[in-house]
Simulated assay, not measured.
Amino acid sequence: MSGADWNRPLWNNVLERRRRGAMPHALLLSGPAGLGKRAFAAGLAALLLCENGGDGACGRCRGCLLVAAGSHPDRVEVNLELREDGKTLRTEVTVDQIRRLSQRLSMTAQFGGHQVALIDPADLMNTSAANALLKTLEEPGAGTVMLLVSDQTSRLPATIRSRCQRLDFVLPNAADAMAWLKAQGVDGAAQALDAAAGNPGLALELARGGGLALRTEVATDLGQLWTRKAVPAEVANRWAKGDGERRTWFAAQLAQAEAAAQARGARGPLALTAISDFNKLAQWFREAGRVREQLRTPVRSELLLLELLLAWRALAPAARRA
């Protein structure tokens, strides 16, 4: 199997379908980034195009060698393309990409077996692209298997979701996640896993990419805003200039962890004074999620962040604010 061991049940599920000759024409691989969906999709595509077959691709046949070289004629992938400037990626999968895919899949497989299409990220198809994909999903060619990879499946139209068999990728238990991180050579695996809310792939990214230091900085900012030792506009401008989306995610996660700790009578990661209104904190948490979504669009990010941080400061108990 390709990918993490915690996805073994999903892999076995697909193998069983394949043995019964009941492989779906479209699979939706759904779940947060960092859980191995993309390695799973690549491994499944390789297996379907392998000329020997088994519980995994053999790695030696003509099909496997062509997949490894990126030149298998019956494997096609749709990703975010570069803009006309040739430097920056588009923010959505376009209708022209899906039309080219559909035209390709309408032809017979060159090697006489499966045709495999990977669409990643499927949830970033625009409305026209999603509509164009529907016809192919409704009338798939013989041997066609489409693998749609999605980190945020709720963004996909219901018409797309209903035409796919769904594989849900979920967080592994803490012991399996810790063992995997240690096998990757991560120092401070427990801290990284806590910062990633139990997501091992994200924990690995944080540990290797400086994310833990950024999370600590966000925690400091939230604490100082709570005690009025920081100016919201200054913090908002700094966040807007450097990874505002991730900072907002950390802020929401830290606030949620703080609330959970205080509800247990424990000390939270922000070590705040007592939270007096958990309902308002829950509203703020939802607002942080909304802001994070909007930060992916062309907006005045510093204004969005300022509004969010002002709302955070307003949550502090009246005595502390005074």
Rank of each mutant, 00 (worst) to 15 (best):
D120N: 12
D120K: 14
P121G: 05
P121E: 05
L124K: 09
L124G: 02
M125R: 07
S128D: 15
S128L: 13
S128Q: 14
S128P: 02
A130H: 08
N131D: 14
N131K: 11
A132H: 08
A132I: 00
L133Y: 05
L134K: 12
K135Y: 11
T136E: 14
T136L: 13
T136M: 10
L137P: 03
L137Q: 07
E138C: 02
E139I: 01
P140L: 07
G141Y: 05
G141F: 03
A142K: 14
T144L: 15
T144P: 05
T153V: 12
R155M: 11
R155Y: 10
R155E: 11
R155T: 03
P157F: 03
T159R: 12
R163I: 00
R163T: 02
C164D: 08
C164S: 15
Q165V: 04
R166A: 10
R166S: 15
R166G: 04
F169E: 12
L171V: 02
L171T: 08
P172A: 07
P172F: 03
N173S: 08
A175Q: 13
D176L: 13
M178N: 03
M178L: 10
M178V: 02
A179C: 03
W180F: 05
W180L: 02
L181H: 11
K182I: 00
K182H: 08
A183I: 00
A183F: 06
Q184G: 08
Q184F: 05
Q184D: 08
Q184W: 05
Q184R: 14
Q184N: 06
D187E: 15
G188C: 01
G188S: 05
A189L: 02
A189T: 03
A189H: 09
A190G: 05
A190L: 03
A190I: 00
A192K: 06
A192R: 05
A192T: 02
L193V: 01
D194Y: 04
A195D: 03
A195W: 01
P200N: 04
G201T: 00
G201K: 07
A203D: 02
E205A: 11
E205G: 09
E205L: 07
L206R: 11
L206E: 11
L206K: 14
A207S: 12
A207T: 01
G210V: 00
G210R: 11
G210D: 08
G211L: 03
L212R: 04
L214M: 15
L214W: 04
T216S: 09
A219K: 02
T220E: 15
L222M: 13
G223W: 05
G223A: 14
G223K: 14
